[in-house]
């Protein structure tokens, strides 16, 4: 009888364990997750201490002064990291142009690991959606913002709280999430 009880106990425990592990593995499969992506979170607030530090793009206004950058920004604002060498950035560029035109003074661009000359050429030929733009030459802003790759876009409320971040180009699902987040930030 003792053996039978033990056997039953092991069966029940085993069944519970199998169900739990199975659910976990199922979760790993079924959700729209890419395990290679670094987890990003809006609960982590970017550090603005070096915001505005960087090199001006030749032919563009010099914003390498915090006051100048912030002055152009009242209310909610968006920070977008891009690079002229970055192919996915070109996918979201048309939308950025549209967004920049519709929301003057709200979109700040930071060129990540980019030669200022190349970045300037890119913005001159493809159009400049940004109200203010700088080359983040020493990548300090990138690290301060917890950047996980370019392009990456951050939506801030008027008081500088991070509301939303898009860890990829603003197309498809990320674009509609961004539009919703921006609408919410306006309120």
């Amino acid at each position: 009888m003792n053996t039978n009880f033990l056997r039953m106990a092991i069966f029940v425990l085993g069944a519970v364990a199998i169900v739990l592990v199975g659910t976990l593995l199922w979760f790993g499969l079924s959700s729209q997750r890419n395990p290679a992506d670094f987890p990003t979170s809006t609960s982590i607030q970017p550090d603005f201490s070096a915001f505005g530090q960087g090199r001006a793009l030749p032919g563009f206004e010099d914003f390498s002064d915090i006051a100048a950058v912030r002055a152009g920004v009242e209310g909610p604002f968006v920070v977008n990291f891009f690079a002229s060498w970055c192919q996915p950035c070109r996918l979201e560029h048309p939308y950025l142009l549209e967004f920049g035109a519709a929301n003057p003074g709200r979109l700040i661009g930071l060129a990540y690991r980019d030669d200022p000359i190349n970045a300037a050429t890119y913005l001159t030929t493809d159009g400049n959606p940004y109200a203010a733009v700088l080359a983040d030459t020493d990548s300090l802003n990138a690290l301060n913002f917890g950047l996980t790759g370019v392009p990456e876009t951050y939506v801030f409320s008027a008081d500088g709280n991070l509301l939303f971040r898009s860890p990829g180009p603003l197309i498809g699902a990320l674009k509609s999430q961004f539009i919703d987040a921006w609408a919410a930030a306006q309120k």
Binding site: A36, F38, R113, S139, A142, L147, T148, G149
Partner: peptide
């Protein structure tokens, strides 16, 4: 943060260099 679970010691990615 752009590699698949590697340490920055083992990557040449731009962000790892940064």
């Amino acid at each position: 943060v752009v590699c698949a679970g590697q340490a920055i010691a083992e990557s040449n990615a731009e962000l790892a260099q940064d």
